[in-house]
Simulated scan of single mutants.
Amino acid sequence: MKIGKLRHRVTVQESTRVNDSMGGGREEWSDLFSTWANVKPIKGERRYEAMKVKGGITHEIEMRYRPGITVHHRIVYDGRIFEIVNVYPDEIKTMLTIECSEVV
């Protein structure tokens, strides 16, 4: 991949569980790292589920290879949040292709 295609600054976040004083807890997201990536939409769709309109956009994010990125992380780009669905490294581990669903 040509480096010029990596023109979007994205942040990969990881989840941690924070306990509260009542014995419960909540999920907090913290920044793991920021990197340059190529964010491109794959398809847009509108579905009717249970008589409600549900919108979803699937994106593909390409970045330089970084070990340890899993479906338990998420990506933030330009104030938008993307849940990771699949992570595919190339054969020589130089690039990652990440399939994401935008959280609406």
Rank of each mutant, 00 (worst) to 15 (best):
D31R: 06
G79I: 08
E45T: 04
G56P: 00
R64N: 10
K93H: 14
M95H: 06
L96H: 02
T70V: 07
I61N: 06
L6V: 11
Y77V: 13
H73S: 05
V53Y: 05
T58G: 00
I42M: 05
D78T: 07
L96E: 04
R66I: 09
V87D: 05
M63F: 06
V103D: 01
C100I: 13
M63N: 04
I84D: 03
I92Y: 08
M22Y: 09
P67W: 05
T11D: 07
V76M: 13
V85M: 06
N38Q: 13
K40P: 00
P89M: 09
I69V: 15
E83I: 07
L32C: 06
E49M: 13
K43D: 13
R64L: 15
I98H: 02
K54R: 11
G23V: 15
H59F: 15
T70C: 07
T97W: 01
V12G: 00
V10I: 15
E99I: 15
T16N: 09
T58R: 09
V12E: 05
R46Y: 04
V39R: 05
H72R: 14
E62T: 10
R7M: 12
R17N: 06
V10S: 03
F82D: 09
D20E: 07
G56A: 13
I75Q: 02
K5S: 05
R80W: 03
T35L: 08
G79A: 03
K52Q: 14
I3G: 00
D20T: 13
I57H: 01
V10Q: 01
G79E: 12
G79N: 07
I57M: 13
E27A: 09
N86K: 10
L96Q: 02
P67Q: 04
D20S: 06
D90G: 03
N86M: 08
E102M: 14
G23S: 11
G24V: 09
N19D: 14
T35I: 14
M51I: 06
L32F: 08
M51T: 08
G25I: 10
I3H: 02
V104M: 10
G56C: 12
S34G: 08
R47E: 13
I61M: 09
H73W: 05
H8D: 15
K43P: 00
G55F: 07
F82H: 08
Q13K: 07
I92N: 08
W29T: 06
H72Q: 12
E62K: 11
E14W: 00
M95Q: 14
E102P: 03
K2A: 03
G79M: 13
E60I: 10
Y77W: 15
R46D: 10
S34A: 11
D78C: 03
R66P: 01
R9V: 15
T70L: 12
E14M: 11
H72F: 11
K52V: 10
